[in-house]
Design a protein around this nucleic acid. Structure first.
Lengths: 111, 111
DNA sequence: GTAATATATGTTCATCTGTTCATATTGTTT
DNA sequence: AAACAATATGAACAGATGAACATATATTAC
């Protein structure tokens, strides 16, 4: 009974609907960022557009691992790609998720 | 070679270290928010301080399920608690994570 | 003290995840 | 067209995860 009127500043969550669909979308978004490999891929792509092989080499991952994770990120529309010759170059598509990642890294670094 | 100087606005991720420890912390934070049950618990707690049983009843979850998830959130310092009689009341502890959740819900709702 | 209530914990189980290998597909280049 | 290069895909496996049950612990009330 002492915690019922804290919806002003400090970004407390306002009363909103949390229907099943929203809940699923939100959890999926965070799931995308819950794996170190995916974070490293997104982090790398936020710095430079990369082909699949470049990602694999830069992060010391198998090509198939990168490809599988890119499919995951692609399905969630978090990355886009373009073909260039025989390679396919990936880059981030969702600025919002990149922002969430950025904030979280900042917060972790500043302890 | 066309994506190398986009570190101004739009919250592109700046060049930072992504050491193992930071990577782990960040991924753990997002993992906490990647499960619908934990999201519902945090969302509920952001609105009112609750005992374990209140959470279980409000969200139609087993008491043990709630307790296990609370332990998870407690380990990550995302919730705090106080004892009152025979009950234990939980509330959010990490404003930053609450902010991430809030942003993500907003984004999902505004499509 | 004992009984009652609230919460925490251990274990089991089914499911989900992420990686790897092997192979298929796709587009390019000659 | 064939050969090549880059990427995607399928299957299999190990490990992680979340829910449920039963039970243990802890505090209050009597």
């Amino acid at each position: 009974m002492e915690n019922n009127e804290n919806m002003e500043k400090k970004s407390t969550i306002e009363l909103k609907e949390l229907d099943e669909e929203t809940l699923f979308m939100v959890s999926q978004t965070f799931k995308a960022l819950s794996d170190p490999t995916r974070i490293r891929i997104l982090f790398l792509l936020s710095q430079k557009e990369c082909s699949v092989n470049e990602i694999a080499e830069d992060l010391s991952l198998r090509q198939s691992t990168v490809s599988h994770q890119l499919r995951f990120l692609k399905n969630l529309r978090l990355v886009k790609f373009r073909r260039a010759g025989t390679s396919i170059y990936y880059s981030p598509e969702d600025q919002h998720v990149l922002s969430l990642l950025n904030q979280s890294i900042d917060h972790a670094l500043h302890d």
